[in-house]
C-alpha cells in the first residue's frame, strides 16, 4: 500500500479521464431514459460490463464530447464541485437536474492492482441506478432539451480558457432559470466512495412539471 499525492503519477489526469468517460456514458443514458431525444438515435453498447444506450447522432455526440472536454481540466485540478445535467422544458425552465457531486481526496492510499476494477464496479452501480431512475421520476413534458452546468470557482475558469478557444466552445455564467427550480423534491440515486473519488448522484425534480 502506497500513499500518493495528487502530483504523483499524474493522478489528477487519471481521475479526470475516468470521470469524464463515466460522465459521457451517464449523459447519454440520462437523455435516453428521460426521453429527451427519440429512442431511435440510441444504440445498445456495453460499458462497465453492463448494457447502456448511447446516441449515434453525430452532432449530439460531438456536443457532449466538447462539453466534457472543457470540464476535464477542472476535474483534473479538483476544481469541479458539481456537474449537473439539467433537463429543461420548452420555456427553458429546469424540470429535472441530475447532480453529480464530486470530491477527490488530497492524499491517496491505493493498491493499484485492485483500484481500477473497484472503481469500475462502483461506476457500474451508478449507471445501473440511472438506467432505472424513470421508475421514481414523473414523466417530463414534451419538447424538453438539456444543458450541462459545472459548479466551480471563478479563479478556476482560467483552466478552461485555452480549450474554449481551441474547441470554439465558449462557456457563460448560468442564469437563474437554469440553476433554480421552484418547489423541487430531491431523490438520492447513488453514493460511491473509492480511493480516488467520492461521488454523490441525486435528482432534483420540479414538483409541477407541466406549466
Amino acid at each position: 500500500m502506497a500513499t500518493l499525492t495528487r502530483q504523483d503519477l499524474n493522478f489528477g489526469q487519471v481521475v479526470a479521464d475516468i470521470l469524464c468517460e463515466f460522465l459521457e456514458v451517464a449523459i447519454h443514458l440520462i437523455l435516453y431514459v428521460r426521453e429527451v431525444y427519440p429512442s431511435g438515435i440510441f444504440q445498445k453498447r456495453k460499458k462497465y460490463n453492463v448494457p447502456v444506450q448511447m446516441s449515434c447522432h453525430p452532432e449530439l455526440n460531438q456536443y457532449i464530447q466538447d462539453t466534457l472536454h472543457c470540464v476535464k481540466p477542472l476535474i483534473e485540478k479538483n476544481e469541479a464541485e458539481k456537474v449537473v445535467v439539467v433537463i429543461m422544458d420548452k420555456e427553458h425552465h429546469a424540470v429535472e437536474r441530475f447532480v453529480f457531486e464530486i470530491s477527490q481526496p488530497p492524499l491517496l492510499s491505493i493498491s493499484s492492482e485492485t483500484l481500477l476494477s473497484h472503481v469500475e464496479q462502483l461506476l457500474r452501480a451508478v449507471i445501473l441506478k440511472i438506467s432505472v431512475c424513470d421508475a421514481v421520476l414523473d414523466n417530463n413534458p414534451p419538447g424538453c432539451t438539456f444543458t450541462v452546468l459545472v459548479h466551480t470557482r471563478e479563479a478556476a475558469t482560467r483552466n478552461m480558457e485555452k480549450i474554449q478557444v481551441i474547441k470554439d466552445f465558449p462557456w457563460i455564467v448560468a442564469d437563474e432559470q437554469e440553476v433554480h427550480m421552484q418547489g423541487s423534491r430531491l431523490i438520492p440515486l447513488k453514493t460511491m466512495t473509492s480511493d480516488i473519488v467520492k461521488m454523490q448522484l441525486y435528482v432534483e425534480e420540479r414538483a409541477q412539471k407541466t406549466s
Binding site: T67, T147, L149, V150, H151, F169, P170, I172, E178
Partner: peptide
C-alpha cells in the same frame, strides 16, 4: 475565488 456556475454558450 467566488463560486460560479457555468454552462456552454
Amino acid at each position: 475565488d467566488q463560486k460560479v456556475i457555468l454552462l456552454p454558450c
